[in-house]
Amino acid sequence: MPADNRGNSESGWRFPEVPYFWFILPGLLAYSILFIWPTIRSFYLSLYDWSGRGPLGPIVWEQNFRNIVHSDKFWQAAGNSFKLFIFIFIFQNTISLGLALLLNRGGASTHFFRVIIFLPQIMSAVATGIIWILMLDPIIGAINPFLADIGLESFQRQWQSDPAWALRTVMIVMAWQWNGMAVILYLAGLQNVPEDLRHAAMIDGAGRFRTFKDITFPMLAPAFTIVTVLSFILIFRAFDLIYILGGPAGVPDGATLVLGVLIYSDAFGQGAFNSQARFSFAMAEGVTLFIFLAAISGLLIWLLGRREAAVKT
C-alpha cells in the first residue's frame, strides 16, 4: 500500500487526496469478492431451482421457502438448535457464572485453574469430538464404568444411540467445550465491578447474597449481553462438533440434527441420506437462518442494551 506516498509529491499526476480510500480498498475488495458477493448471490440463487450441477434451473421465486416451511426435517433441526441454545444459556448463567465468581480473585493458583478451565476452548472440534466419542462409547468408554463405580448404574446409557439421550449428550459435550469462554467473559465483566463498591455494600451490612444481587449482578449486564448474543449466534450456526458427534444426518434418526448441519447435508450431502444435492434449497435455508440470526441478535442487543442503560442510572 505505498500508493498513498505520492499524495504529497511535488509534480506530476496526483493521487486523490483521500488517503483512507487506499487503506480500505484492498480489504474491501477482497471482502466484497469472497464475502459480500457470495452473500448476495445466495439470496439471488435461493429463488431458483438449481441442484448445483449443470446449468441454472428456472426461477421459482418463493417456492424453496415454501418447501422449507413444509419440511419436517427443517423444523426438527430448528427445534434441536433451539433446545441446544436454551441448555447452553442456562448452563452459562449458572455453572459458568458461578465459576467466574469463584475465580474472581488474585493469586497464582487462580491463574492456574483459569488456564485449565479455558483449555477446551482452544481445542478443535475434531479433537473434542473424538475425545468424547471415546468417553461415551458403551463398550470402551469411561463414563459408564465411572457411573457404576460411584453406584449410579441406573444412569448408564447408550449415550449416542439412545434417541432420548443423543441430543442431551451433544449438549453436555458442547457445554464442556464452551464453558471456558463464558467463564472468561464473565470474569472480564466482574473485573469491571469496582471492588470498593462491593466493600461499601458489605460494610453497610449487605450480606454476600445481597451484594451479589444488588451490586455485582447488575454490573454484569454488559457481559451478560455478550455471552447471550455470542452463544446465540454460535449455536444456531454450529457445525463442526455436532457433525462429528452425530454425522450428516444427525443420528439417531435426526435426533442430533441442527440447522448448521442440515444446510450442509442438503447442499453437499451425498449417499443414503440424501440422493441429490440441492444447492438452491440449501441456500434458501441459509438465507432463512441468516435473517433469523440477524433479526434476533439485533433484537437481543437492543433489549439487553436498554437493560444495561437502566442499570447504569
Binding site: F35, T39, I263, A282, L289, L293
Partner: peptide
C-alpha cells in the same frame, strides 16, 4: 469521511452471516 460507520458495520456484520450460507457460492466460484 461520510459512511465510515456504515463501512465498519458492513465488515463487522460478517460475523452474523452463517458460513453455511456463503460457502455454497464460494464453492461454485
Amino acid at each position: 469521511f461520510r459512511g465510515r460507520s456504515w463501512l465498519r458495520l458492513a465488515f463487522i456484520g460478517g460475523l452474523v452471516v452463517p458460513v453455511q450460507l456463503i460457502i455454497i457460492p464460494i464453492f461454485v466460484i
